[in-house]
């Protein structure tokens, strides 16, 4: 694998011949937002086409799904985090490994919208990357009569952050697929950029030595 600089197609073929099934690209998506805004509902709707009425706070849940993204087989890993502050410590660990974020609030609850600011900051702090794939999502858009956060207000914040804003309804499935697919496209684009950027990989060597050192902790 040392000579991986030149032709990408060639490299792919090489892997193909070695392993009959190529591992599809894996994108890691993290759901963040305050408690009760519908992170789990969106996730479950996307994963299993089901809408769960009863609320049960999540500690952390993770899902994997194979999907077709613009004609390409990919896998999506979704991590549904806890909205409650109780699990903030664990949240950090997941944020670090996330490749894209859906930052969700409920359009019926202003507090949850305000909280997105904090989540954004936390993510940027952990990822240390202004351009991390990120979508601001206003959920529960089926409850138009209970709306507390206007579309303009939310779009304005998204614009400031330089991210897209989408309104969804986990109940009616409106824009549910869209947010996940949009985010995955961003992640994919981002990864391509990165691949171009660091073709010479000297980093991995160093990491390996750390890995072997850490190995004694594993069982």
């Amino acid at each position: 694998m040392a000579q991986c600089g030149g032709v990408r197609v060639h490299q792919n073929q090489f892997i193909m011949s070695k392993k009959p099934t190529v591992q599809p690209a894996l994108h890691k998506v993290i759901m963040v937002g305050s408690g009760g805004v519908g992170k789990s509902a969106l996730t479950l709707q996307f994963m299993y086409d089901e809408f769960v009425e009863d609320y049960e706070p999540t500690k952390a849940d993770s899902y994997r799904k194979k999907i077709l993204l613009d004609g390409e087989d990919v896998q999506i890993d979704i991590l549904d985090t806890a909205g409650q502050e109780d699990y903030a410590a664990i949240r950090d660990h997941y944020f670090r490994s996330g490749e894209g974020f859906l930052c969700i609030f409920s359009i019926t609850e202003d507090e949850s919208f305000q909280a997105t600011q904090e989540f954004r900051e936390q993510i940027l702090r952990v990822k240390n990357d202004e351009n991390i794939p990120f979508l601001l999502v206003g959920n529960k858009c089926d409850l138009e009569d209970k709306r507390k956060v206007s579309f303009q207000e939310a779009s304005e914040r998204a614009r400031q952050w330089g991210v897209p804003y989408v309104e969804t309804s986990a109940k009616t499935r409106e824009h549910v697929d869209k947010v996940f697919f949009d985010l995955m496209r961003e992640i994919r684009a981002r990864k391509m950029e990165e691949n171009k950027a660091n073709n010479g990989r000297g980093k991995d060597r160093k990491k390996k030595s750390i890995k072997s050192f850490l190995f004694c902790y594993k069982h």
Binding site: K28, A60, D61, S62, Y63, R64, D77, L79, D80, H93, Y94, R96, S97, K207, I210, K211, L214, Y217
Partner: peptide, 19 residues
């Protein structure tokens, strides 16, 4: 502070099994 790719991978995987 023992952060490694494989550990994070494992974390997701275990989380997935739990879910």
């Amino acid at each position: 502070g023992f952060i490694s790719k494989s550990r994070e991978e494992l974390m997701w995987e275990v989380q997935r099994i739990i879910t």
